[in-house]
Design a protein around this nucleic acid. Sequence first.
DNA 1: GTAGGGTTAG
Length: 479
Amino acid sequence: MFKFKHQIIFVLNHETFRFLSASSAASMVDSITQTQIPRQNLSNPVTQIAETSNSHFSYSLDPKYYIYSLLNCKNLAQIRQVHAQAAVNGMLQNLIVANKLLYIYAQHKALGDAYSLFDAMRERDAYSWSVMVGGFAKVGDYMNCFGIFREYIRSGERPDNYTLPLVIRACRDTVDLQMGRLIHHIVYKFGLQSDTFISAALVDMYAKCRVVEDARQLFDKMLMRDLVTWTVMIGACAECGNANESWVLFDRMGAEGVVPDKVAMVTVVNACAKLGAMHKARLVHDYIWRKNFSLDVILGTAMVDMYAKCGSVDSAREIFDRMKEKNVITWSAMIAAYGYHGQGREALDLFPMMLRSGILPNRITFVSLLYACSHAGLVEEGLRFFDLMWEDYSVRQDVKHYTCMVDLLGRAGRLDEALNLIEDMSVEKDEGLWGALLGACRIHGQIELAEKAAKSLLELQPQEPWALCIAIKYLCESR
DNA sequence: GTAGGGTTAG
């Protein structure tokens, strides 16, 4: 399937596609996706409910009754109950009721239920299709998301500006550029390229697939750019290492009279963090303050990170202390901030405070803590955290945690322990881990161990050119 | 009678 997929993409471009009929668009989608729709169970719970308990049902024929009942459903069992009731009363023939059921199932991530209903529906409209496409995307079942979209195109219906952004986003989330380009062709085919929702989604998709030139081209060609489109493009520039351009775009956006909201500000703050320029950080902060944006968790956390990366851990702490609501990301950001400023003690002091406020650490919190220990030479503390993360908090050590430990032990000159740790670990080793060991060898002039590490690295990934590069680089530097 | 977008930590 994948071979075929690539061949198709290489053969076609926009121009050739323009001359294809809509039905060939369908067969194209057809050849690329393989549907794996869960078929209806023989023991459908809804049928069972309908068979065993219809004496308890009311026999309302008012669609509003079912819609209201569905809105009040708290769990899947209740939804199935209403579904069964509607089935017994023949109300599933009513598109409004059936659509609402689909939607509620999708909201509860019950895509199996939703699909068996969808499959049985004689009449479907654009709403029904987009609920299914979006529902599968929501639970991360992209195969079926694309599969349903394929069926939609094949049914001869014209895809609308609700469904297309959903599949485009699915391409973004799976970083599936080939599929993304294909759907872009379909957008052209149906003449929908000027829809804001669709083009913003396309810009975002190209940006996340790191094809920034395509994203930018599309962006520049757009006649109408709304706030979301601007935000996407500003974020894309920052993400791809051109935070200066983010800043330029933010100015241009303002000049064109588009007023930023909180999400846009988070994106700009983020770009500023990547830029690492304190002057810009103060400007953004001032803007946020003047426009009266409240410091919610996301904006606040972004600002903590921004100030830390622009060099002022104190300003970061000031924002941190002013924030009313903090989550695990906020705490981790502040811990990391102290970490890369070499203030290990301050980082560690935050840990009990975090626990007292009722927030549990996750794997990134521990990466930040271990990183802080290694950059402040707090060896014993690091070892303690490394053990306790699994024992007390059920957070499994992964390769990043091991890398911090190798770095920590390596810097302290305890290279044998670092090597033992690597040899005993059961998780998969990566480039960064060997880099940490080789780095430690370089500091301490341990050429034999460096050679051993380089050899292991090459044995592990003989086919990877970067492995050889890293090994050579560190070996040369050791000598 | 109804659905959809962009945002935070290593």
